[in-house]
Design a protein around this nucleic acid. Structure first.
Length: 804
RNA sequence: GCCGCUGUGGCGGAAUUGGCAGACGCACUUGACUCAAAAUCAAGCGGGUAACACCGUGCCGGUUCGAGUCCGGCCAGCGGCACCA
């Protein structure tokens, strides 16, 4: 392809220039704008065009904000703990710190090709002891506040990664990282009490300018429900079984009860006759993996032989065990109302248990019920003193009625569980806790942090639930900081999410060795105004970060309790036919060749032009020719116009203001693909004007250059300089449109008959309704051949004549 | 199963929120320049017709002077949750 502007020379020149004369400077007077990218894991395979997209979006937005007069916080760093580096270490024997440093250097080079204005003085790396000192510090604070605690229970265990996992890391019963089927393993774990923040995490979603989709995912994940715990006495025994229900209104319809096989009372409820079957069922359930349990569509269960008593009406209800009841939600036991719950209905049908309808559907009782009636809509029937009430009303009142009568209590439940926080792997932050035989768990004193990750001979996970750190005696054995007795260090490490839960705070004060972040800098630069990244972290990183920020707020470390004011999720870029880019598929498109052949400016613009930024897009190399041609055409127009040096005309002024108005609006709407098409459109219009006038006036071209600058910074600087400016184009402001100047005197109006366009007319912008209709009718001429029923004129939009 | 999003030319996608459907670009066709090609420039490019008419935004129906846009009912694709009582 012939080159009419030399992108290589221009881009080199300006890259060097910006290094010597940074364009984003804090003069202490400008307001700040913090635009954050989700920081990458420095993988060995480098960046592809999909990674570019997010960084281009954030850079364009940042530069736009800079031109609006903000001082930018636009940092970049590395989320460098994690399994790939560790697995590489196991295979090659190279310390993760070394391979990670190499990858960082590599990716940094690639990121520099984007020409984003990252402030590398702010760079952070989660594996840097000066950084993870504060990751550990936060943990110690949480421990002191009772938010970090130890617990032994069956956790999610990935047999392939040989480590425990958080709930959020289990996807369809499989490990989020490697896809292996997750099993249960009884392990002593460090937990974070995120559930204590459930309500705040839920309620504060309202404060956030985030995509509704992400807010919904978080609120579903937190899963708050209102209901009641009801106590069912066990017939012939002292014990009572407490169930949790969201539908206490249907209590009269409870015809059986089901306990999770793991329920504490499960085995003891068996009778002589059922003992064998019950024990077998409990054993079988314990052997099932998550995946098995999910895949068993058919309900299974066993009758214990024992009955409970419905506390409301004294009815005898058989107690069953079944694995469709989860041990760790609610009370691990439920009352079953087959008439009004799908699962209970299925179970009752299979085991031939009576079904009693207590809510009338369409005012009557259903004969031969074939499916449960699950809506809380209708009048209560078969429900003693509740008969005749509306179920929707009763649903809300029943918990309080039950509480008043001493049968149970109104209660809320959450799906959110506490966060399993320890990993049995090497490459993570050591958990700064010392186990003392006398004092119990003692945190490493804050002044001794960071607790450095020691060198180790084998990175291989042991698979027993012990971290490789456990093998280093000289590290494990230590003295209790409280009593001085021989003690042992905690050998588990933190999950990768630990560092990423707060890294954005550190950017603004990354060299502070006294505080996580100084009050002064936090006040000045935080929180994040715009956060840009993929949607895959909706319930992981984004939930954890909110939790951490709220905790830091509570202990006074920061004075805001939400980290990210606005969130934007960019779509993925896929290969041909929407197939995800991956090394194994061989469809990865590297930005490097495209930068070489077309230049950074063209690639930046094409990354945006490829489609709406929030949607996934299919990459097609050929499309980049379009933006490349556009840049060349504009280059030529600008250079020719400079030569021609024509005076501005009314048309040019109008076009200038229209383009500013239009492009600014599209940009504000984050419709970046249409910003690019807008540039092309207005360039075409200017070219048309230039055909008659010989060029375009200086101010219009310069306005266009200023708007182009955030998108194609190099060519913009070069043209800006060519137009005689000695200062950077980024030190000018984003242009503003004068609405008066862009008004048209005459408008083209479509003229319709019965809503179908027949012709168009040119009319004065301020034409009266009567005149517009008269002009329209005149233009239609003999096409008007019926009886006119109605005449419509929508100012500046349309003339429509309705005829029969 | 439940919740959410999406469906427009050969392709990527526009449409100021109810007002000329297909902007902008890719691909393609033709022409100019060239010995030739590339690049560039000019013209064309939903179906249909000689030209009009007419038909066209996943499908069926509705509201409206007017529907890609609103309402009701389907279908397909993608994403989230997945026995949470």
């Amino acid at each position: 392809m012939a080159v009419s502007y030399n992108h290589r020379a221009i881009e080199l020149k300006w890259r060097k220039n910006w290094e010597e004369h940074p364009v984003n400077v804090d003069d202490g007077k400008k307001p700040k704008y913090y635009c954050l990218d989700m920081f990458p894991y420095p993988s060995g395979s480098g960046l592809h065009v999909g990674h570019w997209r997010g960084y281009v979006i954030s850079d364009v937005w940042s530069r736009y904000k800079m031109m609006q007069g903000y001082y930018l916080i636009h940092p970049m760093g590395w989320d460098a703990f994690g399994l790939p580096a560790e697995n590489y270490a196991i295979k090659m024997g190279i310390h993760p710190a070394i391979s990670t440093a190499q990858n960082v250097a590599n990716i940094k080079k690639q990121i520099n090709d984007i020409a984003a204005i990252y402030d590398w003085d702010r760079e952070v790396n989660t594996t840097d002891p000066d950084f993870y000192k504060w990751t550990q510090w936060i943990f110690v604070k949480m421990f002191k506040e009772g938010l970090a605690y130890e617990k032994e229970f069956p956790i999610n265990w990935c047999p392939s990664c040989k480590t425990g996992l958080a709930n959020e890391e289990v996807v369809n019963g499989c490990c989020e990282r490697c896809g292996a089927s997750v099993t249960k393993k009884n392990l002593r774990q460090w937990m974070l009490r995120i559930t204590k923040y459930a309500d705040r995490l839920l309620n504060d979603l309202d404060k956030l300018d985030w995509p509704e989709k992400v807010k919904k995912m978080q609120s579903d994940w937190i899963g708050k429900s209102y209901g009641a715990e009801v106590e069912f006495p066990v017939e012939g025994r002292e014990e009572k079984i407490t169930v949790y229900t969201t539908r206490p209104d249907t209590l009269y319809g409870a015809t059986f009860m089901v306990l999770a096989p793991e329920h504490a009372l499960a085995a003891s409820l068996a009778t002589e006759e059922t003992k064998e079957a019950v024990e077998k069922y409990i054993y079988d359930a314990s052997m099932k993996s998550n995946v098995d349990r999910l895949q068993d569509k058919e309900k299974t269960g066993v009758f214990t032989g024992t009955y409970a008593v419905n506390p409301l009406n004294g009815a005898k209800v058989p107690i069953w065990l079944s694995d469709y009841v989860l041990a760790d939600y609610g009370t691990g036991a439920i009352m079953c109302v087959p008439a009004h719950d799908d699962r209970d209905f299925e179970f009752a049908k299979k085991f031939d248990i009576p079904i009693i309808q207590v809510i009338a559907k369409d005012g009557k009782e259903i004969e031969n019920m074939t499916e449960a009636y699950t809506d809380a809509v209708g009048t209560m029937i078969n429900s003693g003193e509740w008969n005749g009430m509306e179920s929707a009303v009763l649903k809300k009142e029943a918990p309080h009625i039950i509480e008043e009568r001493g049968l149970g209590r109104a209660t809320v439940n959450y799906k959110l569980r506490d966060w399993v926080f320890s990993r049995q792997r090497y490459w993570g932050e050591p958990i700064p806790i010392i186990h003392c035989p006398h004092c119990g768990n003692v945190p490493v004193p804050e002044e001794e942090l960071p607790l450095r990750l020691p060198e180790v001979e084998s990175y291989e996970p042991t698979g027993t639930g012990e971290s490789p750190l456990a093998a280093i005696d000289e590290w494990v054995n230590c003295k209790c900081p409280v009593c001085g007795a021989d003690a042992k260090r905690e050998t588990n490490t933190m999950p990768q999410w630990a560092g990423s839960s707060w890294y954005f705070l550190r950017y603004v004060d990354n060299k502070n060795d006294k505080e996580l972040v100084s009050k002064e800098k936090a006040d000045k630069y935080l929180p994040v105004d715009m956060y840009i990244g993929g949607v895959e972290h909706a319930v992981l990183h984004l939930l954890y970060s909110r939790f951490y920020t709220k905790f830091l707020y509570d202990i006074g470390a920061v004075d805001f309790d939400e980290p990210f004011h606005k969130l934007f999720n960019q779509g993925m870029i896929n290969g041909k036919n929407g197939i995800k880019m991956s090394k194994s598929k061989g469809n990865v498109v590297s930005p490097d060749d495209l930068v070489r052949d077309y230049g950074c400016d063209s690639l930046r613009m094409y990354e945006l032009f490829v489609g709406p930024p929030e949607l996934d897009a299919e990459w097609d190399d050929r499309g980049i020719d379009g933006v490349y041609r556009f840049l060349n055409r504009f280059w030529k127009l600008a250079m020719d116009s400079k030569e021609a040096n024509v005076a501005e005309t009314k048309e040019m002024v109008k076009l200038r203001h229209k383009s500013v108005y239009d492009i600014t609006q599209r940009l504000e709407n984050f419709s970046l693909n249409t910003v690019i098409s807008g540039f092309m459109e207005y360039n075409n219009k200017m070219t048309d004007l230039a055909k008659t006038s010989g060029g375009i006036d200086k101010e219009t071209i310069e306005t266009f250059i200023r708007m182009l600058a955030p998108f194609a910074p190099h060519i913009a600087e070069e043209l800006w300089e060519a137009y005689g400016h000695t200062d950077s184009v980024f030190h000018t402001s984003w242009p503003e449109a004068d609405q008066e100047a862009m008004k048209d005197d005459e408008l083209e109006i479509p003229v319709q008959i019965n809503g179908k366009t027949k012709t168009v007319i040119m009319v004065p912008a301020d034409i009266s309704k009567e005149d517009a209709i008269a002009r329209g009718k005149e233009a239609l001429g003999n096409k008007l051949n019926g009886t006119i029923v109605k005449e419509i004129y929508v100012p500046k939009k349309i003339v429509n004549i309705v005829q029969k």
